[in-house]
C-alpha cells in the first residue's frame, strides 16, 4: 500500500523519528536528575556500615545541628532573596520603565549576566580583598575617614557579611528576570488607566503590581533557591564557621570530624525537596503570568 504524503511532497515522519529529537533531553534528565536523585534517596537510608536505616531521616528533624543548619540556610536564603529581589527590581525598573538612558540598560544587563554567575572562591576572595579586615575599602575608610567598620559592628565573616556577599549574585539575577517582565507592561494599560481617571498610584496598585507580582514572587523564589544551594562562596568566606546545610552536607561526606555519608545524603534529599518546592512555586507563578499576558 502506498504511503500517504503531504501536499508539499514530504512523507510524514514515522513515530520513532519524532522522538529522536528529544533523546538528549531524556538522557540529560535521566543521567543528571533522576539517577542522582534516586541514588540520594536510597543512600539516605543507609547506615555507615551499609545496612538499611531510618535513622538519617529521623535525625533531619531531631538533631539540633541539622535543624539549625536548615533554619540558617532558610534565613540567609530568605533575607538575600528579599534584599536582592527588592534592589534588583528597583534597578530593573530604573532601566526599563524608569526612563534612564538606553545605553545604561545594556550596560546593566551585561553586568548582571556576568555578576549573577560570579560566585564561589573568586567572589569570596573579592570581598575579602575589599571588605575584609585588611581589605582595600576597609583601609580607605579607616585611613581617610577614620571609620573602622569592624569596630562599628560590621563583620564580613558573619551572617550579615555572608548575606552581603550573596547579594552580589542575587540582585543581578533579579535584574535579568525582572527586566523582561517590566518590558511586558504595555504602554496602553497605563494610558487606558489614565484615560479612565486613574492616577499613577492607582495604576501601580491596581494594574502594574498585580500583573508583576507573580513574576516578582517567582523570581524571589528562584533567588531563594539560588542562595539555598550555594556552597563554595560560604565555605571559602567563612571556612565552615556558619553552618549552612550545604556546609553540613560537605562535612558529613568529606568526613574530617563528622562522617556519616548516609546523613549527608538525607540532608541532600531535604534540600532537593525544598528546592523542588521552590521551583514548583516559581513555575506555577510564571504560568499564571504567562496566561495573563498571552
Amino acid at each position: 500500500m502506498a504511503q500517504a504524503s503531504t501536499s508539499n511532497g514530504f512523507k510524514p515522519v514515522t513515530s520513532w523519528k519524532v522522538w529522536l529529537g528529544v533523546v538528549p533531553f531524556f538522557l540529560f534528565a535521566i543521567l543528571f536528575l533522576l539517577l542522582p536523585s534516586f541514588r540520594l534517596l536510597t543512600a539516605s537510608f543507609s547506615a555507615p556500615d551499609g545496612s538499611f536505616t531510618f535513622n538519617n531521616i529521623i535525625q533531619l528533624f531531631t538533631e539540633p545541628l541539622i535543624v539549625n543548619s536548615y533554619k540558617l540556610s532558610i534565613q540567609i536564603s530568605a533575607v538575600t532573596a528579599l534584599g536582592g529581589g527588592i534592589f534588583g527590581f528597583l534597578l530593573a525598573y530604573s532601566v526599563t520603565v524608569g526612563g534612564l538612558p538606553k545605553p545604561l540598560r545594556s550596560v546593566l544587563i551585561t553586568f548582571s549576566g556576568v555578576a549573577s554567575n560570579f560566585a564561589g572562591v573568586p567572589l569570596a576572595f573579592a570581598f575579602v580583598a575589599t571588605l575584609g579586615r585588611q581589605g582595600f575599602i576597609t583601609a580607605v575608610l579607616k585611613n581617610t575617614f577614620n571609620l573602622n567598620v569592624y569596630d562599628a559592628g560590621f563583620n564580613l565573616y558573619s551572617f550579615a557579611g555572608l548575606s552581603l556577599v550573596y547579594m552580589y549574585f542575587q540582585f543581578p539575577l533579579m535584574v535579568l528576570i525582572m527586566a523582561p517582565a517590566l518590558d511586558g507592561l504595555k504602554k496602553e494599560w497605563r494610558e487606558a488607566a489614565e484615560n479612565l481617571g486613574a492616577n499613577t498610584t492607582q495604576y501601580w496598585l491596581k494594574i502594574a503590581m498585580p500583573v508583576l507580582l507573580p513574576s516578582i514572587l517567582g523570581a524571589m523564589i528562584l533567588l531563594f533557591g539560588n542562595a539555598f544551594g550555594a556552597y563554595a562562596t560560604a565555605y571559602a568566606l567563612t571556612g565552615g564557621r556558619i553552618g549552612l546545610v550545604t556546609i553540613q552536607i560537605g562535612a558529613q561526606i568529606r568526613g574530617d570530624v563528622l562522617y556519616n555519608p548516609g546523613l549527608g545524603y538525607a540532608m541532600a534529599v531535604g534540600m532537593v525537596l525544598i528546592m523542588g518546592i521552590s521551583l514548583g512555586g516559581y513555575s506555577w507563578l510564571q504560568a499564571k503570568t504567562e496566561r495573563w499576558l498571552k
Partner: peptide, 16 residues
C-alpha cells in the same frame, strides 16, 4: 488625561 472625562478604545484593546 485623567481629568478630561474622555473615553478611549485602543487598537490593541488594552484590557487589564
Amino acid at each position: 488625561p485623567n481629568q478630561r472625562n474622555v473615553g478611549m478604545v485602543f487598537q490593541s484593546y488594552a484590557l487589564f
